[in-house]
Design a protein around this nucleic acid. Structure first.
Lengths: 163, 163
DNA sequence: CTGAATCCCTTTGGATACTG
DNA sequence: CAGTATCCAAAGGGATTCAG
């Protein structure tokens, strides 16, 4: 009777009823600083997420976090597949935000190395929260995605049965 | 002696020397679960950052986090400026990942509402770590960016004096 | 009211070639 | 070795139109 991709009963898996606003109010896991932020900070957060969500920033951060200072070439080897352009561009952005420090040695063969700054390390660690979430729910998310895609496929087909 | 945008002395502000690998090893703020992750989880993290770093996902999440279940129109009003296409698209992605639950009411005028799932709330809270970092360093980052841009401007000019 | 489909512009990212 | 510049393909995202 429902040609919709979703049936009212279907969303039961998510159990929205189980998450009342009260939960949020008294949630023990809620962030220490209540998420009431200035406009500037909010922009910065989104800006950050955009940055680290791009194709390479997180990898660069991770490499520098794991291995300390690295020079351009070394970094490029590690992040195998990155183009020189993107590595430069990515490093510039990170440097501009003060999370990566760039050191130039005035030598005959140019030498430059990069390293996380203290606030860069802080940021890397802050990202661990998301990281941990991903670990916790990796399986679940994969399953949910699969289920979602199946529903899509099923809904697309003429046989719109709804159990 | 240096025509480079950066002088070796310049990066002193970042003090890379101050962040030895030892710091990371024993860092008290380091994530509980060491950041040694499976390939799948890493992909998922990047995927997540991409998602929430886009133009609207975080806003949607935030609205739902703050106000609980909301219907499409209501959500669209709140996220003023979002196009219908992007709201739908964003919600689909979030739903697919299981962080947002969609509920359809089989009524004459179609009604649909959206709400964070339990793991969606968890994720929102995990993002608070980044959020808090942004709050802590908002000023600093702004200053660093300004300084960086100034240096760029200065370096771009023909007068490449270096102290 | 909700949302799919289309058109179109902007941004992102990769390959390549060129400089100090 | 490190980095800039250019060209080009692909993805993101907005406005508009159409449909259940």
């Amino acid at each position: 009777m429902s040609t919709d991709r979703h049936l009212p009963e279907t969303i039961d898996t998510a159990r929205p009823e189980a998450i009342q606003p009260a939960l949020r109010a008294g949630s023990p896991a809620a962030c220490a600083a209540p998420c009431v932020i200035s406009k500037e900070a909010e922009d910065l957060v989104r800006d950050l997420l955009v940055r680290f969500g791009d194709k390479w920033s997180m990898r660069v951060m991770d490499e520098l976090y794991e291995r300390g200072a690295l020079r351009f070439s070394r970094l490029r080897e590690s992040l195998q597949g990155i183009s020189q352009k993107m590595l430069t561009q990515t490093l510039r952005q990170l440097e501009r935000d003060g999370v990566v420090a760039r050191r130039v040695y005035a030598e005959v063969p140019p030498r430059v190395d990069y390293e996380l700054t203290p606030i860069g390390i802080e940021l890397a660690e802050a990202l661990c929260g998301v990281w941990e979430w991903a670990i916790r729910h990796e399986q679940r998310v994969a399953a949910l995605r699969a289920a979602f895609d199946s529903q899509l496929a099923a809904g697309a087909k003429p046989a719109s049965r709804d159990d």
